[in-house]
């Protein structure tokens, strides 16, 4: 499946869903409405980018949800009361992510197991920091998340920024190319003289950075934290990457697609809620939307291969 098709599908599915939501709820078609629809998708988009960094190097991260929860707890406590210590903790947690990446590569450990283990570590730390829900968002992040830019709402601006910057970083820069190459063919990268350990640590550190951003943004929206606040981000982020045209192997990812995938997932929830679907059916319906999109993608990629085959033959 080449790059052109990879981005086509997430755009299409988001457009279809958005049209359906506007049809069901015309009120959503406004500055205020779009912001309400999408502002909680901003931290999901950031967490999805974090997950994408890991999937890009052929691993998977099962600790994104608890990590974002942990960051949210740090943000609502230390970052608010003692900003210096707060920043230090967040930097340390990014370093920890890099160290995990290096460890996974050096010891050839399965990432799925290591990150599953780490999810309990982050979860435990979050409970230690905030045994009962509470804390307060630092005023500056609250201001950033509730800012009202002219014409286009904050949520949309933020998503465009996230998509644009990560696209430049991953798809256009030389570092990005190397990182994707680690996922594509690590041995070739190693033979040409690069340190795969360093690159993997780098990819994990980037995941840490975006995880931290997700947690900080989330607290900016909710105003306070809870040790379990973002648990569902783990699965949402994986689904977002795949919906956005990413693949589990080979360094094939798309940052713009991942952001669109996250928006699609967030929108799917609102769509089902506007449909007045009974909650008993909602999880199933959400899954059905996912399967539907992936099935369409399979058809796309088959076609793509056929066309390519025809060109070559």
């Amino acid at each position: 499946m080449n790059g052109k098709y990879r981005i086509l599908l997430p755009v299409l599915s988001l457009t279809v869903l958005l049209a359906a939501v506007f049809y069901l709820q015309p009120r959503a078609m406004s500055y205020f409405g779009l912001n309400l629809l999408f502002n909680l998708a901003v931290p999901i988009a950031l967490a999805t980018i974090a997950q994408m960094m890991i999937i890009m190097v052929n691993d998977i991260d099962l600790s994104v949800g608890t990590f974002v929860s942990f960051v949210a707890c740090v943000t609502a406590t230390f970052l608010n009361d003692a900003p210096l210590i707060g920043v230090a903790i967040l930097l340390a947690s990014i370093l920890a992510y890099a160290a995990i990446g290096a460890l996974i590569h050096i010891r050839q450990l399965p990432a799925i197991v290591v990150t599953l283990g780490m999810s309990f570590v982050w979860g435990g730390l979050a409970v230690l920091l905030l045994p009962s829900p509470g804390g307060a968002a630092p005023a500056w992040i609250r201001t950033v998340m509730t800012v009202k830019p002219p014409l286009v709402p904050m949520a949309v601006v933020a998503c465009i920024l996230i998509a644009g910057l990560t696209h430049l970083l991953i798809m256009r820069s030389s570092t990005g190319t190397l990182l994707r190459a680690v996922g594509g063919n690590a041995q070739a990268v190693a033979r040409s003289g690069w340190s795969v350990t360093k690159l993997k640590a780098g990819a994990y550190a980037l995941a840490g950075v975006f995880g931290v951003l997700a947690g900080v943004c989330l607290v900016g929206l909710t105003t306070s934290a809870d040790a379990n606040i973002a648990l569902r981000y783990t699965l949402l982020s994986i689904a977002g990457v795949i919906l956005g045209g990413g693949e589990f192997t080979g360094g094939r990812v798309s940052p713009v697609g991942a952001v669109l995938g996250a928006l699609t997932l967030a929108l799917a929830g609102s769509f089902l809620s506007f449909m007045r679907l009974s909650p008993d059916w909602q999880i199933g319906a959400q899954g059905a939307i996912l399967i539907l999109v992936l099935a369409v993608r399979l058809i796309f990629s088959r076609r793509g291969r056929k066309w390519k085959g025809a060109e070559n033959g």
Binding site: Q25, R27, A28, G33, L36, L37, N39, L40, L218, L221, T222, D226, N228, I229, A230, L231, R232, Y233, A266, G269, S270, S273, F274
Partner: peptide, 16 residues
């Protein structure tokens, strides 16, 4: 999940 309920409440605002 709290994040899901927050989204649900925002949807209710939209629904008027």
């Amino acid at each position: 999940q709290a994040t899901e309920q927050a989204a649900q409440i925002q949807n209710m605002i939209l629904q008027g």
